[in-house]
């Protein structure tokens, strides 16, 4: 009896729910289709990594690769170019992490101490600029500035009686130029988030610190930095998750024939051997390896951070 009495009410409620919200589902149709077509359907193509690629068959029909399907993973890990690309990816990302990660924190601390408001704004605007330049443009500028004999930097070095430096043509120097250009491009932009976090710090803490006789550096160390800790940790997790990830534009635009032993990373390996070299199974396997390790890294970093009692990202 009771349910019979309630039923029409439930039904009406359901009707009114649909009546009210059907447009929301309508709006979601396009985005959801987008994700299905451009993200989820390609995910089914990942099986190519375990199969012998054939141009005439659909991915579901292709025959399995040898070694229980792991043929191409074995091939990848016995491929000299891939091992170099893997090493370079990790090496460049670790260097980016060591030098590029602290840079915006330090710059944010410096900008925060800047006493002149207008000058601070101008500095910020100019510091954000490199973020808006493409790596093609940056590489074009770098090729001119760092050119062995004709570049501005080497002209200056020569006039000062110093040796010229082959910034982009010698593997060792190239690595440091790569790291430096990365910092140059992103340091200003990455301060935004830290500066926003600094404004959220309770000003009373600074006053209390000042009462205790703390100077500029002690305030930075005991108030600002602890206030930034949650932000630093979240961004650190994200960077750790990207340790095996590789951007394409930066190494591709900056790389050249002389430095290919250190400049080839996983993304450029996939491009040259996959899209140019048509070894689809091999490069899909490499891509899958990269994605899976990336996810494992993010999850691990997140779990470690949570164990230490910090807020994670998930």
């Amino acid at each position: 009896m009771k349910t019979a009495a309630l039923n029409p009410l439930v039904k009406r409620k359901k009707n009114s729910y649909l009546k009210r919200y059907w447009t929301l589902y309508l709006l979601l149709i396009l985005p959801v289709t987008y994700f299905i077509i451009f993200k989820y359907i390609p995910m089914t193509y990942i099986q190519i990594a375990f199969k012998k690629y054939s141009i005439v068959q659909s991915v579901w029909q292709m025959p399995w690769a040898d070694n229980y399907g792991f043929e191409y993973f074995i091939k990848a890990f016995s491929n000299r170019d891939f091992l170099y690309a893997l090493r370079n990816t990790v090496m460049l990302n670790v260097l980016d992490l060591i030098f590029g990660f602290p840079a915006p924190i330090i710059l944010a601390l410096i900008l925060n101490e800047l006493a002149f408001k207008r000058f601070k704004r101008i500095t910020q605007t100019i510091a954000y600029m490199p973020h808006f330049l493409s790596w093609i443009i940056i590489s074009g500028m770098a090729l001119q500035l760092f050119a062995p004999t004709t570049g501005l930097i080497n002209i200056v070095l020569e006039r000062m009686g110093l040796n010229t430096i082959p910034f982009l043509n010698d593997p060792n120097h190239w690595i440091w130029t790569y790291v430096f250009l990365g910092i140059w491009q992103s340091v200003g932009w990455n301060t935004i988030i830290y500066l926003a976090a600094i404004t959220a710090i309770n000003p009373e803490l600074y006053e209390a610190a000042a009462m205790d006789g703390a100077g500029r550096f002690r305030k930075m160390w005991h108030v600002t930095l602890p206030g930034l800790r949650p932000t630093i940790i979240v961004l650190l997790i994200l960077s750790l998750g990207r340790i095996l990830g590789s951007e394409f534009d930066r190494p591709y635009a900056l790389g050249n024939y002389y430095v290919k032993d250190v400049a080839n990373v996983i993304s450029t390996f996939v491009y040259t051997n996959g899209i140019r070299g048509l070894q689809f199974s091999l490069t899909t396997a490499v891509g899958l390896f990269q994605s899976v390790v990336g996810v494992i890294f993010v999850l691990t970093a997140n779990a470690i951070v949570k164990r230490f009692g910090e807020r994670g990202i998930m």
């Binding site: 994700f35 993200k39 190519i48 996939v270 996959g274």
Partner: peptide, 22 residues
């Protein structure tokens, strides 16, 4: 469900070659 489906693609992407073949 929609949220999870969308966020998942941020952490795990299908990769260059599958997208190219699509």
């Amino acid at each position: 469900l929609f949220n999870a489906m969308i966020i998942f693609t941020m952490y795990f992407n299908p990769g260059t070659i599958p997208t190219y073949l699509l």
